[in-house]
Nucleic acid binder design. Structure first.
Length: 429
DNA sequence: TCTGGGGTCCTAGGACCC
DNA sequence: TCTGGGGTCCTAGGACCC
């Protein structure tokens, strides 16, 4: 056996499309270039073609509803508008901004096109959703080359080529970060947005990474960010100076240790180039909060429709699942989930509807509902043989947790057996 | 004028099995 | 009447991400 040669240093890129949905829209509405444009909301605000060949766009000021901003152009961001902001709030900041509905089919086409353009140059790609990917450049010819005095010149040149290829193929710009791992590349791709290219080595962590707020780190969200702030830790540099034991005491073994490693830019995770979906779901927020009894027929129709769409998604993509679940968001924003594991895989509408109905019976429905969702998990590809489950051959699942027994309003719930479950008119076909 | 929709992963307790 | 431990599955909730 020959001795193992030292493995080449890892060169990992993170590529993030700039204001992706909005940029896709600008490809077909070039007259909006440079304008504040916001993507979000339902289908009620399609641009209307005018007799003179121009288009009439909806303005944010005209919007009424519960939608949020999905993406905003940089011109709109200048007004303080950003993703996940309520559209009504965005309208207060930038009433004159153009509002476009989301068109996922368009974005999916652009997504496939940019990923294909990257794959021509670097085929090892981890999908991270519609608008971003990780790329392993380690083994790409030329990526490890020194150019002039720049030991990362080859990597830099390759990243530039990737950006050019994406631009040629889609007309869209992206930002790329190249570092020794995914965690740092994700941070690096943001440092020079839009149309950015940032190559970082480990020596640059103190100067380039440590000044950043902790929230920039992928894995520190609102909760952890607030807790860290409460401990006086605002930047990654401050986090890095903490003793691991001190962090573990406050954040638990796993997360505490990770926080420390992450602040030092340590991350050995490989790219995941083949992943199978774990679950598929459909959910909807109502225009107004609905009550299980008073709005029963409306809820029943929505519930059934969600089940139908999940079944359709599963069948179209060729998956079956064994766990059916529901999700409810009440008017106070509290979320409740229930699920039920079936004896066998299914992608069948009637089975999903039936199981989801069983789940619904275990929820106290006195509060009004804001959102309803249906999910199928435990997915397997439909064309693969079903693995025998030890569980499924045994006794039937024990009954779910009983519904809490409310006092005065019990009658309201109890006299509607099954609530909006199992209505023959909704489930007939 | 509050706060979408589609996901993943983790934790934790109890059931159940060996 | 008292004593195990390990492992997996199921369920519910929650954090986080795009």
């Amino acid at each position: 056996m020959p001795a193992n040669p030292t493995p080449p240093r890892r060169l990992i890129a993170h590529l993030d499309m700039d204001a992706f949905y909005a940029s896709c829209e600008l490809l077909r509405y070039p007259d909006l270039r440079g304008e504040p444009v916001v993507i979000g909301g339902g289908r009620r605000h399609q641009p209307e073609p005018q007799p003179d060949g121009t288009r009439r766009y909806a303005r944010l000021a005209d919007y009424a509803g519960r939608g949020v901003v999905t993406t905003a152009t940089y011109a709109a961001r200048a007004f303080g508008v950003h993703s996940a902001m309520g559209l009504m709030k965005a309208a207060a900041l930038a009433p004159q901004a153009v509002l476009l509905p989301t068109d996922f089919d368009l974005y999916k086409r652009c997504s496939r096109a940019f990923k294909a353009a990257v794959a021509e140059l670097a085929p090892v790609i981890e999908d991270r959703g519609i608008d971003e990917i990780y790329i392993d450049l380690t083994e790409v010819p030329g990526a490890q080359d020194t150019i002039g005095h720049d030991p990362l010149g080859g990597a830099r040149a390759l990243a530039r080529e990737i950006k050019n290829n994406v631009q040629r193929a889609t007309g869209l710009t992206c930002s790329i970060g190249v570092t020794p791992n995914k965690l740092l590349s994700k941070l690096a791709s943001e440092l020079d947005k839009p149309d950015g290219l940032t190559v970082l080595t480990l020596d640059e962590i103190p100067t380039r990474i440590w000044p950043l707020p902790v929230r920039k780190l992928n894995g520190i969200g609102p909760k952890a960010g607030a807790k860290l702030a409460g401990l006086g830790l605002e930047t990654l540099g401050q986090l890095a100076q903490c003793e691991p034991e001190w962090l573990i005491e406050r954040f638990g073994q796993s997360y505490g240790a990770w926080l420390h490693r992450a602040a030092w830019g340590r991350d050995e995770r490989p790219l995941v180039t083949d992943s199978e979906p774990v679950s598929m779901s459909r959910e909807t927020t109502f225009d107004r909060d609905l009550h299980a009894v008073r709005d029963r027929s409306q809820l029943s129709a929505i519930f059934t429709e969600l089940c139908r769409r999940v079944a359709e998604d599963l069948q179209r993509k060729g998956y079956v699942g064994r766990t059916v679940g529901i999700k409810l968001r009440f008017d106070d924003f509290k979320i409740v989930t229930r699920d039920l594991t079936l004896p066998a895989n299914t992608a069948d509408f009637a089975s999903i509807r039936q199981a989801a109905g069983q789940c619904l019976k275990r929820v106290d429905l006195r509060r009004r509902l804001r959102l309803l969702g249906v999910r199928v998990g435990n997915l397997h590809r439909a064309d693969l043989p079903e693995l025998p489950s030890r569980r499924s051959t045994r006794a039937p699942a024990r009954p779910g947790r009983p519904m809490p027994k409310p006092a005065a309003t019990t009658m309201l719930v109890a006299r509607e057996p099954g609530l909006f479950d199992d209505l023959p008119d909704e489930t007939a076909n």
